[in-house]
Nucleic acid binder design. Structure first.
Lengths: 156, 156
DNA sequence: GCAAATTATTTCAAGCTTAAAGTTTCATAT
DNA sequence: ATATGAAACTTTAAGCTTGAAATAATTTGC
């Protein structure tokens, strides 16, 4: 993964490979920048931000398994991140009457306010970091990636 | 990060934000699939594959700091991955006469052959996973991502 | 020549990540 | 009722990841 500038081999499968490498490098580059800024400016991490973003969109709460599916990470992973957010008072687990295996996870009032603050700044960062991508290209790129997702979800 | 299907807010910065989310989800989706296949088929990991891919392109070897820069990961990170590859006999460190702080890291003969095998299969996977992206879209996407990279590299 | 700054790397602590195994609870079929 | 199995979650072990501190070697400025 993450091969880079050099010979530029050609052939049948090479175009897709080159696309994948570019895609991966672009997202890693941006991710690294965001991680650094989240740490410096808000003393938090990308995974915590991801979880909070998911919960912010679901005021009624989410199950752990919902979070895991939505964030594309493993089940056990979410446990740890939520544990930390709980211990920081940003997230709460609520046991449910119906099914005692599950717990609804949601932002606390503090968590919600904290997230709103960070999210606003975050959106500005993205605007800055992707600012050189023209409106047109941004829309085209988004469209292609959306159709990639549709194809993926509907595969075999 | 990784927000998903839902309201679809609109506004000035929202287009870039949506693009970023799509980009991140696409690369995470593909990455997860590759990670799983590398584990199942070759009992290896993505980071190991990345390091070996970098070294494969540099038969004369690379410094640790070159690897770190090239792979967009921290210095300390590379140390651990290379340690494991060395203990598996796939990579070798060679101390240099000139500068004794540094060591040239390169693939062993076994490492080179192992990587060639995996890389061939890997390329097929990418072709499969990105197969639904048309040739045209692939070229366009690659072009946009390339110009993103140029802009990024040339920012103050 | 030698102290100070710089460079290359490793070590460390904390946190993230996965896959697999374990626990508790629920649903179902006897 | 009670076994059997499935579901939701947590725990565990191994590995990845970062940022910061430590170590060692080189270069620079007097």
């Amino acid at each position: 993964m993450v091969a880079g500038p050099l010979p530029a081999p050609s052939g049948p499968g090479k175009d897709r490979l080159r696309l994948w490498i570019r895609l991966l490098r672009a997202s890693r580059t941006i991710e690294a920048e965001l991680r650094e800024r989240l740490k410096k400016e808000f003393n938090t991490t990308l995974p915590r931000f991801d979880v909070m973003a998911a919960l912010y969109r679901a005021p009624e709460g989410m199950l752990m398994s919902d979070l895991s599916r939505f964030l594309l990470v493993s089940n056990g992973n979410v446990t740890g991140i939520v544990d930390r957010l709980v211990s920081e008072g940003l997230v709460a687990r609520a046991r449910r009457n119906g099914d005692r295996r599950t717990s609804m996870v949601r932002l606390t009032e503090e968590g919600s306010q904290t997230f709103a603050t960070i999210a606003a700044v975050h959106e500005g960062w993205i605007g800055e970091l992707l600012g050189k991508v023209s409106e047109d290209d941004a829309r085209r790129l988004t469209g292609m990636l959306t159709s990639f997702r549709s194809n993926w979800e509907g595969r075999e």
